[in-house]
Every structure is written in C-alpha cells, then in structure tokens.
Design a protein around this nucleic acid. Sequence first.
DNA 1: CCTTGACCGTTTTTACCGAATCGGTCAACT
DNA 2: AGTTGACCGATTCGGTAAAAACGGTCAAGG
Lengths: 234, 234
Amino acid sequence: MNDADPREARLLAAAETLVLRHGYDKTSVAEVARAAGVSKGAFYLAFASKDELIEELVLRESLAFQARWGTEVRAHPRFGTVGAMYEGMLAALEERPLMSRIMRRDAQLLGRYLHRPGNVFERMAAGQPTRGEALAVLQKAGAIRSDVAADVAAHVINIIAFGLVSLPDFVVATGTPPPGEVFAFIGQMMDHMLTPADGPTPSARAAMEQLMQRGEEGLARFLDARAAERRARR
Amino acid sequence: MNDADPREARLLAAAETLVLRHGYDKTSVAEVARAAGVSKGAFYLAFASKDELIEELVLRESLAFQARWGTEVRAHPRFGTVGAMYEGMLAALEERPLMSRIMRRDAQLLGRYLHRPGNVFERMAAGQPTRGEALAVLQKAGAIRSDVAADVAAHVINIIAFGLVSLPDFVVATGTPPPGEVFAFIGQMMDHMLTPADGPTPSARAAMEQLMQRGEEGLARFLDARAAERRARR
DNA sequence: CCTTGACCGTTTTTACCGAATCGGTCAACT
DNA sequence: AGTTGACCGATTCGGTAAAAACGGTCAAGG
C-alpha cells in the first residue's frame, strides 16, 4: 500500500463517493480524475486500469472493515464466543455501508466488474478460511458446543448476514429497531445456541484470536503482494 | 373462490407453470390461453385482466402456503413456541418455491406487476397482523420471555426469513446443508432465545392457535370478498 | 522528469424504422 | 348462452446507423 502518493489517495477518495453514488459502470475514469482534480492521464499514472481502481477500493474497504471488526470483537465483553465475533462483525458492517454492498455483491455498485473472471473476490477468498472452517476450528477449541453441527451453524450465520445486509433495501426504513439492539439480539441468540455453558474458555479465546489474526494477516499479505506487483509493473 | 369453473382452474394451472418458468412479463395471455386449451376470448370470460390472473395466482399460493404452514405448525412437537411456528413456516416454504419467490418479491417472477400501485401485496398486508404485532400477542400470552424486546425479535425473524428465501439464488448450490437440519437449527435457536424455561404453556398454545386462525381467516375473508366482487362484476 | 489533453479504437447510447406482439374488445358464429 | 378469433391501439422488438462516451495511449509542452 502506498499512502505516500497523495494523488492516489485523492483519486481513491473521489472514486469512493462517485462509485458509491452511481456505481462502477456509471462512473467514468474522466469523472474520477476531474473530481480528484487531476487529468485523465494522471489517473493512469496511479492506476493501471479502471479495474485496478475498484479493486483497490474494495481491498481498502475490506481492510478497514476487518480492522474495525477486530477492535470491536476484541473489546467485546463476551470475547471468545461466536456471538461476540458476530456482533462485532455486524457493528463494523453498520459503520461501513460500502462493505455491506460489497458483501452482498451489489450489482448496482459493482456493475460489470462483478462478472469479470478472476476478480478480486475470487482471489481474496482463496486465502481466507470459509465460515464453515472457522466454526470447525472454534468448535475444536471449545468455543462451540460439541453437539451442534458446525456446518449447519455456519450456513445459518451466512443466512443471517445476507439477510441483514440485504433487508434494509427491501423493507421500508420506518419502524426498524435500532441496529445496536438488533445486533445484540442476534449475538445473544447465537451464544444461547452455540456457546458451551462454561462460557468462553481461555482456549476458545486463543483460537478466536488466532482465527482473527489469520484473517487479518491473509488480507494484509494479499494487499502487500498486490502493492509490490503494482510497484514492479511501473 | 370458484373452483367449480374448470376453465379457470386450467388457466390458473397453465399460468402457474408459465409464470414460474418465464415470469409475468414474458408470459402472454395468448400463451396461457393456448396452454390451457382455450381461446384468448375465453380467458377474458374467466379473468377481467392479466393482473387479475397473477393476483389470483398469488392469493391461491398464499392460501395453500398458509394451510400447509398451519398443519405443519399444529403437528409440531413443540407447538406453542416461536421456534415451532417458524420451523413450520420454513418447512412450508421449502415445499412451495413459488411462495418463496413471492415472499421476496422476486422481480423476475412478478415483473411489472410488482410496481403496480395498489397491488395485491399492499391490500393483503392491510388485514394481516405484522410480525411485530404477532410476537407482541405471543409475548403477552407467555409464549415469549418477558425480558426480550418483541419488536427486535420480529425484525430478526424477518431478516432470517428474507435471508433464507434469498440466499439459495446467491450462493452456489454446492455444500449447503440439508434444509431440514437448517430449519431445525433456526427453530431451536429461536426457542433458546425466546421461549420461557417452563416451555409452551397452554395459554401460549391457545394464543398461537388464535393467531394462526386470525391469519387464515383474514386471508380467507380477503379471498371471499374478492371472489364476490369478481362475480358481481361479471 | 512529470503532467497533460488531444487522439485512438472500441463500446454504449440514441434515434428511428417497420414488424411483431402485447393486453384487451366485440361482432359473428356455434 | 357460450365461445371464438379477427381486430384495435399501444407497446415492444429487432435491426441499423449515427453520435456520443468510454477506457486507454502518447507526442507534445511545461
């Protein structure tokens, strides 16, 4: 990541607002350059292509989201439980509407990029543990009761996550309870179902910490490799 | 409802397959008539418009779904708990793919009809209790612990329902656990969270029975009024 | 050096056409 | 009385072509 380049940063900032408002397809390189106060040519000094721009946007948002998730989870009073992990994720999502739309593969936002073969989502997912694997690890560490089916639990978690990031666009905005309460409810519900009676054991906490770190490092490594590749191509 | 008219029934059956396959927009009245073995003119002897056809389809599917839901819930071993109610709903949904798509307001299926002002969804919802109201009633009857926020619970239920009917189209079909296990998991999760320790009391069961009946009667009344109106317009 | 905007080839949008098809009607026929 | 299919105006479709906008490049200028 090259935050030293102020031009790149301004382009990314401009792109974020424009893409968030009009989507990838309806946001032109010229527009982004103009909004950032540089020429179109300069855009191509910072990015190799329009795709590289959106990918950088997605990756930085993912990084910021994951960082936020990490601090949220580690500060959670029930750290070590699936509920805490999940509540942290939801709280982080709530603060990052862009991430919500990325997560649900919003077609309006991502446009044609979504159908690009070998897009950043596929490549990112390659290194990351799936939700099912993560839960299996947590179960082995005692963070999840041994009598529940981890794969089923993972699927239900996916269902809830998807419903949560998708529903707001579906229902009328009126009358939905405060997000914080909803997240707390979901988190507690997960814990009632999944967490053993003896609460989050130290080994559960350690496994969760390791899992979070693995995710963070995986993403960081991906970003570093990418940054190096970009620098080399220059 | 006039099941005595075999022509109407055949038109509806033909429409169901065609609409399910090609959607409302791409299914023409002529096609439906031909598939039902009658002329286009005859179609308009049975239905006042194409909209009336899709509405009848939606309403009958809703009725069949609700009936199925009712038997499923009443036969459930944990009848009287929210989990049982919910598991029954999911099981009924699983058997009625059309209802799933109606519930999520599938644009491909419903096409232009979806954007029609004063469509059947708005009119149907008018008489029915919202999920929030239903849960409030259940809570008062002791089917839900008094220390949970019923409106939050209702919202989370909506989230799960929406995620469940929407996710299958989103994720790859591979690797999802069997529906029955998923439903059971969700139902148990709800019960762990919502149902009081003393289990489903008789009063809870009574309230739930009343609630189900209210829903069934509301829909039946709506259908009857509609059928009468249609007969009168003839 | 670094930056620019005119320029390139391609893709997308717009406009337009007649033909086809749409939902809906109704005089004619069985 | 019950049913039909030709018919209506409106909408959509498929094809075409001109115009606009696109992503990306690079000689020229600062």
